[in-house]
Computed example of a mutant assay.
Amino acid sequence: MDLPSWRDSGSRRAVVEFVESVTRPGAAFVPPADRIAAFDNDGTLWVEQPAPPQFDFLLRVWSQEARENPSLAERQPYKAIVERDPAFFEGLVTQDPDAVSSLESAAARSWAGTTPDVFEAQVRRWAETVKQPRFGVAYTDLVYRPMLELFDYLKAHDFRVFVCSGGGRDFMRVFAEEIWGLPKENVIGTAPAYEYTDGRIVRTDRMLGGLALGAGKPEHIYAHTGRLPLFAAGNADVDIEMLTTASFALLISHDDAEREYAYTKAADTSLAKAEKLGWVVVSMKGDWSAVFSSMYDEWSLHGCHESIADSSRSPAARDRSETSGGGGGPPGVARADGDRVVVGAHACDSSGAGRVMPSSDRARATALPGCR
């Protein structure tokens, strides 16, 4: 069955009808060479709350650097991290171009002069050790199963699938082949420039082109593929330009507080645009029978979305945890706190240790309310 985690809804039918119309002989037929599908990443392919995962990675690295070299606290973004600047952290959550630009520029400086394998090793260690604070599993376990099925469905109909994100291209490329089934060259995004020096490829302290946000998305897609997308999917206001250039636009609506998150922040304009232009809006709650791609979904499907550590706390305490950042920053945003990195009200030490769910705890999860 095609798209097995998609319920038989208007959204699923619209996707299937469009793909069939452009791949069968007829007036709407599109040659395979022009079947480009472009997807946003954060919030479209995996969880972006309480902050986009790459920001979690960068804040951990820079918090450690600031502890080792206190003079860095006079420079951005170290200054904002040390001072827990609410405006800075809010900008990260909403993917404000200025905030993202400051991070990407700083990232280019932090790894300038290093070879790609140095950065990749750090990202892999983060991916293998850091746990998402609410669900207690690796961020890479929180990829959306229905979107992976959509990748496969499109590829089976001779679409070439690309991911284009305002986040770091090289960050995404580390795990693209393993969790998305896409080659590295199909990942487009904000990136550093490279130089060939003394027989090695090394990162520079310059960005390659502009940010892949807003108008930068179709610009990056065209520069990379020589075409604009036929099919595009996103979830936020920064995806509007990419979605507008596509013949078929899919907008993910985060309306499932039980299995994921429910929010419209930084998406209100795109939702209004979808209604005006007739884009297909996917309701996580109504259109998807499953959310995540990993074994985590085996118990999340039954309403067991809280971490084991949270299950013993009172409902009032859990509510406060969801709505309070713990002081010094807006709700649910990663920030530095001594030797820890805090995401919302949940803490991990700077080594990456966090809330882990061993197999014994997964078994205990079945005792939680709503679990089988």
Rank of each mutant, 00 (worst) to 15 (best):
P218F: 00
G352R: 03
A112M: 05
K285M: 13
F39Q: 04
P52Y: 06
I81Y: 03
Y139P: 03
G278Q: 05
S289R: 14
P330L: 07
R259G: 06
G210H: 00
E195T: 11
S5K: 01
D34V: 11
R124D: 09
S351C: 00
W46Y: 02
I179N: 03
S360K: 05
L72M: 10
S350K: 15
L301P: 15
L150R: 00
T269A: 10
G91L: 00
V356A: 10
S312P: 07
V100H: 00
Y139D: 02
D361H: 13
W46S: 01
F119N: 00
Y261S: 12
H302A: 06
Q122I: 02
E195W: 12
D170S: 06
H220R: 07
D141T: 08
T94K: 12
P369K: 07
D339S: 11
T44S: 05
S270F: 04
T269E: 12
D205Y: 01
A246W: 00
F175E: 05
S270W: 07
V30N: 01
D268Y: 13
A290H: 10
I240P: 05
L250K: 05
Y78Q: 11
R7T: 04
V280G: 08
S350Y: 11
P369G: 09
K217F: 02
G344R: 04
L277A: 09
F248D: 04
V174G: 04
N186E: 02
A51V: 10
T23W: 07
S289G: 14
V93P: 07
V356T: 12
G136T: 05
I188P: 00
A138H: 11
D56N: 14
V187P: 06
E306Y: 13
D198A: 15
A363Y: 13
F135V: 07
G216S: 01
P32R: 12
G167W: 01
G278H: 08
G329N: 09
A80I: 01
H220W: 06
S21E: 07
V280M: 08
T323A: 14
E74V: 14
N186V: 12
R145K: 05
L228S: 05
L211M: 03
L58A: 06
T94Y: 01
G181T: 05
A272Q: 09
E20W: 09
R169K: 13
L3S: 03
V22E: 09
P358H: 06
D42A: 05
A176M: 04
A309Q: 13
W180L: 09
E258S: 10
G344M: 02
Q54L: 14
K276H: 12
A193T: 07
G91T: 12
I221A: 02
V19E: 00
F248C: 04
V137T: 04
W126E: 06
H220D: 01
L301Y: 13
A290Y: 10
I179S: 02
D42S: 03
P146A: 03
W288H: 14
S102P: 08
A267E: 06
P52A: 14
S350G: 15
V22P: 02
Y263F: 04
E128D: 15
L213G: 11
P53M: 14
P31Q: 06
E260I: 05
T197F: 15
D96F: 08
A27P: 05
Y139W: 14
I36D: 01
